[in-house]
Amino acid sequence: MTDLVDDLLAGKHSALARVITKIENRAPGYREIVSELHQHTGDADVVGVTGSPGAGKSTLVDKVAAEYRDRGLTVGVIAIDPSSPYSGGAVLGDRIRMASNAGDMDVFFRSMSARGSLGGLSTATTDAVTALDAFGKDVIIVETVGAGQNEVDIVRTADTVAVLVPPGSGDDVQMLKAGILEIGDVFVVNKADLDGADRTVQQLREMLQGRSGAGKAGHHGAVATAEQGEAATEGTDDTDETWDPPIVETVANRSEGVEAFISVLEDHSEFLDRTGARERQARDRFAAEIRTLLREDANELVAGELARHGGIESAVDDVMARETDPYTVVDEVLAPLRECLDAENAP
């Protein structure tokens, strides 16, 4: 197992690929691997790219990766595609668009399927980013369809979030509903050569003005969901500087606007360093990660206890027969845990 970590740190591509597989499968030993890798991370710039299907995410990511390579940087890409809830299978097609980096091993492109999971995917993504970071990638791009909480969680893995908006997606309400305005640090109107692009840029601009007036805390995607709230508030705005998300126009398949897009990413990266926001974001992320892991592991412990008590079905039987009630069941299941903790905490 440690061999795999050594191989990864030594720059062996197949080791990196295998580590990500273990992370995806939660194979035995993956936790130890990620733990060992953690100390080697923290150097990569992580960029999240999200947007509706067909917005041109993969094409843009391809061109951006190629541009970074021209500048001598190494790139890791994680592309997340939905999987069928019925068969569990998936066709992961983002790779088809990676034509500009064909055969270049220093662009490490990995497709991941959503595997119909809630929460688990964002953990897997975070861990995969850890692996790419430890491998020594300078820039890591996480690409996902922007729809729903799960994806929003994934994009939060990133230091900088780019939201792609195709022209003519019009209807203001649609975008507000998706909550997508709040998470973007940069907005990209891709396919800017199409009719309606100007209008989309205009609409976006108006909506973003509304946003900066509305909430001051929202410099990075209103990081404050209920749980992360405390962590976020303690760190808000010791400087007055805020980030106004720029709007960039690109025609990704012709590489137009790609350089402008990258320089905006760089500006944001500098902004994060200058204001200390990068550190705050990292703190928030780790806080959220610790909470998530705690919850998952605690759930597992409790599920084990429940099984030892005869499982949920028999408990439900007893409750149905009015022999006991849900509160008593929970007390009984958790009794050994409580005893342990009490013994531990006793002086």
Partner: peptide, 25 residues
Amino acid sequence: AGFEVIYSGLHRSPDEVVQAAVQED
């Protein structure tokens, strides 16, 4: 059948196939 499939697209060179096979594990 429940597998995850990575489709390469047309006209790939052997190098590209190797790159995909390695990176996608």
